[in-house]
Lab assay of single mutants.
Amino acid sequence: MDTYKLILNGKTLKGETTTEAVDAATAEKVFKHYANEHGVHGHWTYDPETKTFTSTE
């Protein structure tokens, strides 16, 4: 398992979190669920070199 990072740049919520996942697709599902639960619906990007997802509203 690898550690993946999420950076949230929402209108009402900003911050970072991490998750352990078997691959990027699994981490993306976890992070999108997390963002949706916190009302963040933004544009998603992923940097495979740093294993970092960013959601920007």
Rank of each mutant, 00 (worst) to 15 (best):
E20Q: 14
V40A: 05
G39L: 05
V40H: 10
K32Q: 11
E20K: 13
E57R: 02
G10T: 09
T18W: 14
E20F: 12
V30A: 09
K5Q: 05
V22L: 12
K32C: 07
E16T: 12
A35K: 01
E37N: 09
T3H: 07
K14I: 10
F31H: 01
G39A: 05
I7Y: 06
G42N: 03
E37M: 14
T18N: 06
S55H: 10
A35V: 08
M1L: 14
K51G: 03
K32A: 06
H33M: 14
S55Q: 08
Y4E: 02
E57M: 05
I7F: 06
D23H: 03
N36C: 12
T17G: 04
H38I: 11
V30D: 05
A21H: 02
D23A: 03
E28D: 04
Y46D: 00
K5S: 05
I7G: 01
T56W: 09
D23L: 03
F31L: 07
W44M: 09
V30K: 08
E20M: 14
A27I: 01
Y34Q: 03
D23N: 09
A35F: 03
N36V: 12
L6I: 03
T18A: 06
K32F: 08
T12R: 07
G39S: 06
H33K: 15
A21R: 01
T54N: 05
S55I: 15
T45D: 10
I7P: 01
K32W: 10
V40T: 04
W44S: 01
I7V: 12
A25W: 09
G15R: 13
A21K: 02
K51M: 06
T52R: 01
E57H: 05
L8R: 00
D47F: 05
T52K: 02
A35W: 03
T19D: 02
H41N: 12
V30L: 11
F53S: 00
A21N: 02
N36W: 14
T12K: 09
E28F: 15
G15S: 14
W44V: 04
H43Q: 13
L6A: 03
A27R: 00
T45H: 11
H33G: 08
D2Q: 15
G15E: 13
A24T: 07
T56R: 05
M1F: 12
H33C: 10
L6P: 02
A25F: 10
V30T: 11
S55A: 15
H41Q: 11
T45M: 08
L6V: 03
T18Q: 09
K14F: 10
E57V: 06
A21G: 02
E16K: 06
G10V: 04
T45E: 12
K51W: 04
E57T: 05
K5P: 01
T54H: 07
T18M: 08
Y4F: 10
N9R: 09
A27D: 00
T52I: 07
V40G: 03
D2S: 14
G15D: 12
A35G: 02
W44C: 04
G15A: 15
T56E: 10
Y34N: 01
A25G: 08
L6G: 02
A35Y: 03
A24V: 11
D23C: 04
P48K: 08
H41P: 04
S55P: 03
H41C: 11
A35I: 07
T26F: 07
S55F: 15
L8D: 01
T56A: 06
L8M: 11
T18V: 09
K29L: 12
T45R: 06
V30F: 15
E37P: 01
F53W: 05
